[in-house]
């Protein structure tokens, strides 16, 4: 029996080795997603469907609520700023990775991958310690140096949330950039330098445009992660700090209004996909634009 199964697999036998995984995802992924979708449009109470009446009430409630749009705007700018600063900090290191010897390359890679193996929660906690009140690392250092007389209030603000997001999502930006940059064709750079262009000019005109696929990959991942993260805003933003993702958590776990939680989760998901699509399209357009210019 077992032998004949393996036989079939060895023949490159079609779909069926993938069938268990496929079936699993239909039951435990597609069906739950369908229920999530349904809960956004069908009245429910305590987890049971009250009536099978389809209603757009919850969707309209959310979309006509000023508070929702304020909260959404915060999700959006936190996502954009985190992505921007993440890129700004990630690119130089990824670029230098391609210029140094193998040993240093290894060190950079270890430093980048290691944080991925620790939980994001631990890394968020680190920022509580660093930015936190009077005895936080930053305030302790600043006060010791005599630069400030009173502790700065850094925690529980946009600043804290964005700093946390940038640092925690750095590896997701660095890795695609390293992949693209280390496989790049260096002839163009050499030609550019040989023709007398400065290194800075060569960097902006050749290296940066050529790494566009890595930039698109990194920015889409980091934006999606920052936009949908609710742990970092909760811990570093404090009690009154809400984003759409935080609201999803609060409506489902704390308030137990699953209709509103479901519709917010769906809006978060759909808007996230739209933004990722926009970044990808804009990136591709820029790529074609630079190619046309070259």
């Amino acid at each position: 029996m077992a032998a004949s199964l393996v036989d079939k697999v060895m023949k490159g036998g079609g779909f069926w080795p993938a069938a268990p995984a496929f079936l699993y995802l239909v039951v435990f992924f597609i069906m739950p997603m369908a229920v999530l979708l349904a809960f956004g449009f069908v009245p429910i109470q305590r987890g049971t469907v009250q009536s099978a009446n389809f209603t757009l009430e919850y969707l309209f409630d959310v979309l006509t609520d000023d508070l929702f749009w304020r909260v959404w705007w915060r999700s959006f700018y936190v996502g954009v700023l985190s992505t921007f600063f993440c890129f700004l900090f990630a690119y130089p290191l990824a670029y230098i990775h391609t210029l140094v010897g193998r040993r240093l390359q290894m060190v950079i890679l270890i430093l980048t991958v290691a944080p991925l193996l620790t939980s994001a929660l631990v890394r968020t906690y680190a920022w509580l310690v660093i930015l936190g009140g009077r005895r936080g690392v930053v305030n302790a250092v600043l006060m010791d140096l005599g630069l400030v007389s009173r502790p700065l209030r850094m925690l529980y603000s946009d600043f804290a949330v964005i700093v946390g997001m940038v640092q925690i999502h750095l590896p997701f930006m660095i890795l695609p950039l390293i992949t693209v940059l280390s496989s790049r064709d260096r002839k163009l750079e050499h030609a550019s330098l040989g023709l007398g262009a400065s290194r800075v000019r060569t960097f902006f005109r050749i290296v940066l445009p050529m790494s566009m696929p890595g930039i698109i990959a990194g920015t889409t991942i980091v934006f999606a992660l920052s936009y949908t993260n609710f742990i970092i805003p909760q811990l570093l933003g404090g009690g009154g700090y809400t984003t759409v993702a935080v609201q999803v958590y609060e409506f489902i776990v704390v308030i137990l209004d699953w209709n509103k939680g479901a519709i917010l989760a769906l809006l978060l998901l759909v808007s996230c996909f739209l933004f990722v699509l926009m970044i990808t399209l804009a990136g591709n357009r820029m790529m074609r634009w630079t190619e046309a210019k070259a």
Binding site: L25, F29, G47, A262, L269
Partner: peptide, 26 residues
Amino acid sequence: ASALIVAPQMLPGMVIGVATLFFGAY
């Protein structure tokens, strides 16, 4: 089939958690 199998990776963990919770309640 390939797209379906890698699809969950593109969703935030929260959405998968919430969807499973709702499906379980259902």
